[in-house]
């Protein structure tokens, strides 16, 4: 039983379907990466799993429970953490307040979780009184990931977390994501930087026009000459 599974998802934003019988899943402690050319429906697939568009067919299950009908907010309460590609921090609020807002639905003591986030991203501890909008792009992404971790989610979903950051920052961020996965959290990630992302992936999905084209472990996909030629630029 896959921990988080979007099974045979078909649907779009009203109008024509963007996803066609698309299946994506991830286990606890695993990193799954969705790659593919522009317009392949990668982000759409992730949004479908998160409930931001309604499916015409197919189901989404988490920990065995059918959550297809739930709104995104309810899925957050069920243990999904989502980091949008843009607008993923509260720019005028301090780093610490961003984390607090991430934990808004929690009524218990959040200090321990915040401590874990600070341990994971030490720079955030340093800048915790600073407004998130004043941070660099890479630091802002760390705030965004930290914010999503504040609900202690079972699965963390990242929509192109390395868009617009330098290669060094990207490597750093991927290292952190591996660390997060080691704590037992399932990670589902959409990525443009396919090669680097598949490098850290336990499971890789190559989507083309809203359909599953290749599904395998990250290493196998990287080794597949056909995949390399068509999607990874040789």
């Amino acid at each position: 039983m896959t921990f988080l599974l979007g099974q045979s998802m078909t649907g779009g934003y009203g109008g024509a379907d963007i996803l066609h019988d698309c299946t994506i899943g991830v286990e606890r402690g695993e990193i799954a990466v969705v790659v593919g050319p522009n317009g392949a429906g990668k982000s759409t697939a992730m949004k479908a799993i998160f409930g931001m568009l309604s499916l015409r067919e197919g189901t989404v299950t988490m920990d065995g429970e059918d959550i297809t009908a739930l709104a995104p907010q309810e899925r957050v309460r069920k243990g999904m953490g989502f980091v949008p590609q843009t607008g993923n921090v509260f720019p005028s609020m301090s780093v610490e307040e961003n984390l607090e807002m991430g934990a808004f639905i929690r009524d218990d003591d959040i200090r321990e979780t915040m401590e874990q986030v600070y341990t994971l991203f030490p720079i955030l501890r340093e800048k915790r009184r600073q407004a998130a909008g004043e941070l660099s792009g890479g630091q802002r992404q760390q705030v965004a990931v930290g914010r999503a971790l504040m609900t202690r989610p079972g699965v963390l979903m990242l929509d192109e977390p390395t868009a617009g950051v330098s290669p060094i920052v990207m490597d750093e961020l991927f290292d952190r994501i591996i660390e997060i996965a080691r704590t037992g959290i399932a990670i589902l990630m959409v990525e443009q930087n396919a090669k680097q992302a598949l490098n850290i992936a336990d499971k890789g999905y190559v989507l083309v026009q809203g359909r599953n084209r290749y599904t395998d472990t990250g290493a196998t996909l990287l080794a597949d000459p056909e995949v390399r030629r068509a999607f990874l630029g040789g």
């Binding site: 907010q73 957050v76 309460r77 989502f82 607008g87 993923n88 509260f90 609020m93 914010r147």
Partner: peptide, 13 residues
């Protein structure tokens, strides 16, 4: 938070 980023505020519950 809501004033800053409405969508993210909604996501945060």
């Amino acid at each position: 938070a809501y004033s800053d980023n409405e969508d993210l505020a909604l996501l945060s519950g």
